[in-house]
């Protein structure tokens, strides 16, 4: 084995250490899982909630509920589920949904939205960030659960089964939520078209 090769992370050993209240093991576990948690938090981050605070909440729940982990699913999946449900709780807490207005878009975002509404061309690669921002602003119009389902389906391209595993919702409920959310989005697009860019 070459000297610079990193040994695989001993998750089972680390969990044993955490159960024995070994702080070094807890630190190693947090460092190991942070990239996974922060990706979930960033993709479902509610407005005005600092990502580090949300990540901390996820890890605190992980430590508190560690005794409930039976090993039925891989540990990172279990932690992902905690991260997703924590994000949903925060999204739910934000009851006020800001109205979608052309005036709130940046100049570039307005141009990208105008272009997709008026022609059938794909979004150019250099406008990807603007498209990302528009999608997030549109999704913010939906309720927490609908946002979560559409984000996972259309942005992360997860399957219904994967979403079910991450959220704990049954597959028919997810399909129903997706249907309802798409109908709301369709209505929103009609409204945007009606308002048009001033």
């Amino acid at each position: 084995m070459p000297d610079d090769e990193v040994p695989p992370f001993d998750l089972a050993g680390c969990l044993d250490g955490v159960r024995r209240r070994d702080q070094a093991a807890a630190r190693a576990l947090v460092d190991h899982l942070y990239p996974l948690v922060i990706r979930i938090v960033r993709s479902h981050l509610p407005r005005r909630v600092p990502e580090e605070d949300l990540a901390q909440e996820v890890f605190m729940k992980m430590f508190t509920r560690l005794g409930q982990y039976q090993g039925a699913v891989p540990f990172p999946h279990w932690v992902s589920r905690i991260a997703v449900t924590t994000c949903i709780d925060h999204l739910r807490a934000q009851k006020r949904r800001p109205e979608f207005r052309w005036a709130d878009l940046s100049e570039n975002e307005a141009e990208v939205l105008d272009a997709v509404m008026t022609n059938e061309n794909d979004v150019p690669a250099n406008d990807a960030i603007a498209a990302h921002e528009i999608v997030h602003k549109l999704l913010a119009q939906l309720n927490a659960e609908d946002q979560m389902v559409i984000r996972m389906l259309d942005l992360e391209q997860k399957t219904i089964a994967e979403i079910a595993a991450l959220t704990g919702w049954n597959q028919s409920l997810i399909k129903m939520r997706a249907f309802r959310a798409r109908r709301k989005l369709q209505k929103l697009f009609k409204e945007i078209q009606r308002k048009e860019r001033t």
């Binding site: 942070y34 901390q56 605190m60 990208v112 979004v123 990302h132 528009i134 942005l155």
Partner: peptide, 30 residues
Amino acid sequence: RLTAGARSARDERETAAPFGFATRLSALAF
């Protein structure tokens, strides 16, 4: 088309835990 465009946006932010984050958390947890 918007979601296809959004998917191609690359997130280049750091994903490693900030300095001291794990230490603070483990102290809080225990």
